[in-house]
Design a protein around this nucleic acid. Sequence first.
DNA 1: CGGATGATTGTTGCT
DNA 2: AGCAACAATCATCCG
Length: 137
Amino acid sequence: MKTRSRSTQESSAHKSLSHISHSNSKPKKKNKKQAQHKSPLKVKVKDDPHKPKKPPTAFFFYLEDFRKTFQQENPTVKSMRQIGKACGDKWKTLSFEEKVAYYDIATEKRAKFERAMAEYVKRKENGELSDESEDEL
DNA sequence: CGGATGATTGTTGCT
DNA sequence: AGCAACAATCATCCG
């Protein structure tokens, strides 16, 4: 058994999913906190080269798989935004087992991330003052 | 023409 | 303990 088991998502799975948004008029007044990053791939916001990026969540893994299937069944849909909505909707309808499958991947990914983070911190403590010209290394 | 945003949920990080 | 920002992706839209 994994000590780090996701503590069984069944609890979470049984969470209240009943309150599905039934609001029609939604002025899309969502906070721009999430989409605040413009071009993350182009814009570098002073991030340390050792700073590990956040690993994709289980939802993202599902997205990858769902995206292919969705495009096959919906060749008309090209934008991933629409897929995201459909994916999110189906994601909530995913079976516990299916969710766990993706959660497991995400869990492993997190472990890897934590390790990268630990190394990052260690590196920071060790050679933060040192020149990080590893690029030329 | 080009940059920027929008949407999905989860997850991590910092305060 | 909780909030905030960010993780991919890409079509579409405004300037």
